[in-house]
Each structure stands twice: as C-alpha cells, then as structure tokens.
Design a protein around this nucleic acid. Sequence first.
DNA 1: ATTGTGACCCTTC
DNA 2: TGAAGGGCCACAA
Length: 105
Amino acid sequence: MTAGEFSAVVLATVQAIPAGSVMAYGMVAQMAGFPGRARHVGRVLAGLPADSSIPWHRVVRADGHLAFAETDRNFRRQKRALAAEGVRFHGRRVPARYFTAGVPV
DNA sequence: ATTGTGACCCTTC
DNA sequence: TGAAGGGCCACAA
C-alpha cells in the first residue's frame, strides 16, 4: 500500500459523502479500509489544493466540532460550505443526525 | 535513531 | 461537557 493509493481511496470515500451530511475523519478511515488512521485522513485533506473539487468540508471531528480553530480561515470556509448544503450547527458543532455511514467503495 | 507535531479518536473521570 | 491520558503514524528537524 503506497501513500498515493491510500490518498486515492480516502478521497474517493470523501467524494462519496452525500451533500447535506457529514462524516468523521475516523469514519472515513474505517470506510476506506484503515480503521484507527483518522489522523492520516486529516493529513491527506491537508494536502488538498485550495481549489480542489473534493468536498472536504463534509468531514468533521467525531464530536461534531470542525477540525479548525474558529480564528482559522478554513473554519469559516467549511462552516459556510456546510450551511449552503443545509447543515445547521448547534452551537459550535454539527448535530449527530447529520452524520452518515456512507456507502462502501 | 529520537523528538515534536498534527484537518484524530476512545475511554475515564 | 470538558479535561486527561494513551493510541495512532507520517513527516520534518
């Protein structure tokens, strides 16, 4: 398993997340076939170009919090993208009902 | 080889 | 809810 193959599977999984719902980093990892590697998913997304078409904003932490500090540019970006899809925040996190198990690849 | 650092997560308290 | 402690593992210094 090379790094390239890993990110390919991860990105494919993220791309499969339906609009209006979210998935946790760990869920993506498990779905991609790498249980316990949540951090690696984050690393892959961190490497995405700013203009990427990958819906990275649909990936949040397991507790519903966004992975960025509120002062971070990306925080606003992600929150706005989610709001545009109808995902309402409850305080600083997205409610559990928005999480999806996704579909196997 | 060792150490510090993350777009993380789970169990306990 | 939130903090603490332990796991996880690629990467850079």
